[in-house]
C-alpha cells in the first residue's frame, strides 16, 4: 500500500554510557536525536531482547531526544544473561535512575511486547514522570497469555514451528513446558542451556511476523542473543513478571488514565494475541486502540511501523 510511513533515517547516538545500577549490574544507555528535544525512552522487549539501532528510528530525530537502554543482563549491559537481582521492579527502578542521571523530568514511554508490560508497570508507578505512552503488541503477563504461547494456543497456527519448540523436551515433561525449559535454561551444562535457549528463541522468532523472516529467525538462534533472551524471559515468566496479582497492570489503569496513550496491535499477533490489547482498551478507553489488519507481532511489521511513527509524530509537539 502506498502512503505507509517508514522508519526515520539511520542516526548515530551523540552520547553513550554505562550506568551502574547495583553492586552487580551496569546498564548500557545511549542518546540520539535532538539533545534539546522532547525526551522519549524506548523500552525493549523480551525481557532480555536488548536494543537495536533501528529502534532509534521510530522517532523524528529533529523533535525527539531519544533514549535507548539495555535492560539488566542483556544487550551491552553486564553481567550478560544474569538472573540475579533481575525483576520487573529492579528495571522500573533502573529507569528512574537513568532518568535522574540524564536530568530528564518527564519522558514519553514507548514499548512493545514486554516493552509494553514494563512501560505500563513504570508508568503506573511513576505517572508524574510519564508524558505519553505508546504501546504495541500488548502483553499483560497473565497466565492465559503465557499458556497461549508456551503451552498450547499459538501452536494450533504454527504446528510446524511448534514441533521444533517441543523437540528438546522429553514427552514426560511436556505437561509444563515452561518449567521444563526453565530447568534447562538454568542448567550448569552449557550445551543443555544453549540447545534450550535456541529452541525457545527460534519459536518466538518464527511466529513474530505475518511473513516469516529468515534473517530474524537466524539472529534469534545465535548463541549470545539466545542465551540472554531465553534465560531472562523464562526467569520472568516462571515468576509471573513479579507482579503482586495477575491482573495488576489492568487493576492499576486508573493511575495512568489521564496520560495520553496509543495502543498499536497487529491482528495476527500470535505471540501477544489481541485479547490483551482489547482488555487493556476496555479498561482504558481513553487510550486510542489501533488494530493493524495485516500485521503480526513484530514492531518491524510495515503496518505497525506506520502506526507507531504516526503516533510519535502526533505527540512530538506536546510540551514535555
Amino acid at each position: 500500500m502506498t502512503g505507509r510511513r517508514g522508519f526515520y533515517p539511520e542516526i548515530e547516538p551523540y552520547d553513550r554510557g554505562m550506568l551502574r545500577v547495583s553492586e552487580l549490574h551496569t546498564i548500557y544507555y545511549e542518546q540520539s536525536g535532538n539533545p534539546d528535544g522532547k525526551p522519549v525512552v524506548f523500552v525493549h522487549g523480551g525481557p532480555g531482547g536488548g536494543t537495536d539501532p533501528k529502534q532509534r528510528r521510530f522517532f523524528d530525530p529533529a523533535a525527539y531526544r531519544i533514549v535507548l537502554f539495555d535492560q539488566r543482563g542483556c544487550g551491552k549491559s553486564t553481567p550478560h544473561a544474569s538472573l540475579v537481582d533481575n525483576t520487573t521492579w529492579h528495571l522500573v527502578a533502573d529507569m528512574e535512575a537513568l532518568r535522574g542521571h540524564l536530568a530528564i523530568d518527564r519522558w514519553q514511554v514507548f514499548g512493545g511486547s514486554w516493552g509494553s508490560t514494563l512501560g505500563l508497570a513504570y508508568a503506573q508507578r511513576h505517572p508524574e514522570h510519564t508524558s505519553e505512552l505508546v504501546l504495541r503488541g500488548i502483553f499483560l503477563l497473565r497466565k492465559a497469555e503465557l499458556d497461549w504461547f508456551y503451552q498450547g494456543g499459538a501452536s494450533a497456527l504454527f504446528p510446524d514451528a511448534w514441533e521444533t519448540y517441543l523437540a528438546p523436551i522429553p514427552a514426560d515433561e511436556r505437561g509444563d513446558l515452561m518449567q521444563a525449559y526453565h530447568r534447562r535454561l538454568t542448567s550448569d551444562d552449557r550445551a543443555t542451556q544453549l540447545a534450550a535457549a535456541q529452541a525457545w528463541s527460534v519459536w518466538e522468532a518464527s511466529t513474530s511476523f505475518l511473513y516469516p523472516s529468515g534473517d530474524f529467525i537466524r539472529h534469534a538462534g545465535e548463541d549470545h542473543f539466545a542465551t540472554a533472551f531465553a534465560r531472562i524471559e523464562c526467569h520472568y515468566f516462571v515468576n509471573r513478571g513479579f507482579l503482586e496479582v495477575e491482573d495488576q497492570l489492568l487493576r492499576d489503569v486508573d493511575r495512568i488514565r489521564d496520560i495520553p496513550g496509543v495502543i498499536v496491535q497487529g491482528r495476527y499477533d500470535v505471540v501477544c494475541p489481541m485479547i490483551s490489547a482489547w482488555d487493556l482498551h476496555r479498561a482504558w478507553p481513553q487510550a486510542r486502540l489501533e488494530i493493524i489488519p495485516d500485521a503480526g507481532h513484530s514492531g518491524y511489521e510495515p503496518g505497525i511501523v506506520h502506526a507507531l511513527v504516526e503516533a510519535t509524530d502526533s505527540f512530538r509537539r506536546r510540551a514535555a
Partner: peptide
C-alpha cells in the same frame, strides 16, 4: 482459540 485473536 479464535476469540483470542478476534475479541471484537
Amino acid at each position: 482459540g479464535t476469540r483470542v485473536l478476534f475479541p471484537d
